[in-house]
Design a protein around this nucleic acid. Structure first.
Lengths: 339, 339
DNA sequence: CTGTTAGCGCCTTCAT
DNA sequence: ATGAAGGCGCTAACAG
């Protein structure tokens, strides 16, 4: 039952072996004040021989900080996971911090932090969109937990730095490409979930593109996609079954685009000749799809890295950029009709 | 008016406010021994009002354990990341443990644990293939760090539990499918890197399938793939340029299959009519490829979950299953020539 | 059931 | 430049 602890050397052992005090050992470990070179060598030798590793718990307790960042992620991050984590890890380690991960089961009625990420167990929190809602954020903020939000802006009354991507202009450019270059006017929009900010901005871009070209907004062409393969496929299939006419689909994201391909193919429609399709995110599967998916590249790793930088800055200086919008870029492939 | 203030409340504050001793507070927190209901309520009330959160560092120091598992991952895990982490997280949380993540830059000359995962900062380590080599493993093992290996078996002289997947039988079945059902005899094998155990077993399966059907092993058909898109593409392109004749390709993994598709298409070959292609892993992109990729499903989330279970068991009981081979399953799609 | 009392291993003044 | 001593906040005997 009680976990046996392999007894390893402590700072006392090192001090004894090097015949100095523990304070001195602490000093050579942390290089906090000069120590005579001779002693430094003795201490280092002792640490090596004893295979000494400072115990994080003891150090954290004494220092009153954990040197650890918490990352709160939704359950189904899918392919974003890899790049995002890579970006976060890089910066985190660069600054000598550790990374503690927790996932938030999607519908948390409590809207509270996972226990493990609680107040004093972490120096700050990276929170991905959808993991904590209004009340949860406000509560954590009130408790003074340093936080940075990813792909989600904070409630207006509290100032939490947020890092996300430029959605609207890219979406608009994408849809305009469909209109101008490929002369499509009946363009379906697969909406994301209402609480998804990315989805909202992408819809704005879609609307602006239409307005710019004097194409009336047609509610019949706007159907749920939810950034989900199945949902997207169902929606497009229904459109087809209902006899709705359209010449292009803005899928909302790449994942939904997969569903769109499926539904279109099942109905015998050719992509892009009959219906052009575009996505968003430029996930790894985008270039593998046939035809290769025209989409918008989202710099996911950089989002993670920048959010981490902001959080670290907030922790160290108490200040951070309220909103960072990372640039996106339209990636033209073949699904829009281009060669 | 209770003022929400101290993000600094400690167990003493709670004890004082509930007018009990700190031990009692500790008892209601940990439910270690019965406490009278009346006092429980008082303590809980105090914790609520004070917004008390136990400090992990203090607790870990006193308990001599961290309640945290470390996860060591390679830099570029790609699409495995999501599922693997999901499996690990689930089990980890189920057992009340936290998860600390670190990535190992591929070529670590030191072959040592990242500082953050050092001896006493974690109760045990989950180590993905390729992150730590022989010496590193032996050293960590000697220091008594509980570990579980993922997709990599330990050096013979030390007993570290390993969880991986069944590679050989599935590969053999896959290749036999190509031989028997689709009558391909000239089958290219894209080899993985020599230190990749999965790759080795897959090659064995390939060889067994050939032997079973009395097809001589032809070294000219075995080229590097490295589970890498570009490498695979290059290898296949060279084969084609060299005029080598082949009717099928076992890509080693799905990622390489993408490269195979590219090279084949660039040369005007039809898949599967001219050349059948199969992969391994059943990553998300497999079913999106055109034609959909015939491959082998690897239960990645379950690998993560099971490795975590073994590690936890090792930590708690000192025992664990030396080797767990999770079953795989051939997934027939269209790239092999099936309808 | 509840309170008292040692530490857990390290950092950090404060002396020297 | 080095040592001594007092915590950091919590758990875990040990007494009542």
């Amino acid at each position: 039952m009680p976990t046996p602890q392999s007894s390893t050397a402590t700072i006392d052992d090192v001090a004894r072996r090097a015949r100095v005090s523990i304070s001195t050992v602490s000093r050579v470990i942390n290089r906090t004040v000069p120590v005579s070179p001779d002693i430094v060598r003795r201490v280092e030798e002792a640490m090596r021989v004893l295979r000494y590793v400072p115990r994080a718990a003891a150090r954290n307790l004494a220092r009153r900080n954990t040197n650890t960042l918490g990352l709160l992620l939704p359950d189904g991050l899918g392919d974003f996971f890899g790049p995002l984590l890579r970006g976060i890890q890089n910066v985190t380690h660069e600054h000598g911090y550790d990374l503690l991960i927790a996932t938030a089961g999607r519908p948390d009625p409590e809207d509270s932090l996972p226990h493990s990420l609680g107040n004093h167990n972490t120096d700050g929190l990276l929170i991905f969109a959808g993991c904590l809602r209004r009340q949860g954020l406000i509560r954590a903020y009130a408790q003074g937990v340093p936080m940075a939000l990813i792909h989600q802006t904070p409630p207006p009354e509290i100032a939490i730095p947020c890092v996300t991507i430029e959605n609207k202009a890219a979406s608009r450019a994408l849809v305009e490409h469909l209109i101008q270059v490929h002369e499509r006017r009946k363009i379906v929009l697969l909406q994301g979930l209402p609480d998804n900010e990315d989805a909202q901005w992408r819809e704005s871009g879609y609307r602006e593109a239409l307005a710019q070209h004097h194409i009336p907004f047609d509610p019949a062409l706007v159907v749920p996609g939810d950034f989900d393969r199945q949902r997207a496929s169902d929606s497009v299939a229904r459109l087809l079954a209902d006899g709705v006419i359209f010449k292009a689909v803005f899928s909302g994201d790449d994942e939904a685009a997969v569903g769109v391909y499926q539904a279109l193919r099942a109905a015998g429609k050719r992509i892009p000749q009959d219906v052009a399709v575009v996505g968003f995110d430029d996930q790894r599967l985008a270039e593998v799809m046939t035809p290769a998916l025209t989409t918008v590249h989202a710099p996911t790793a950089e989002v993670g890295a920048e959010a981490t930088r902001q959080l670290l800055r907030l922790i160290k200086t108490g200040q951070a950029e309220p909103l960072t919008l990372l640039p996106t870029e339209v990636i033209i492939r073949q699904s829009c009709g281009c060669e």
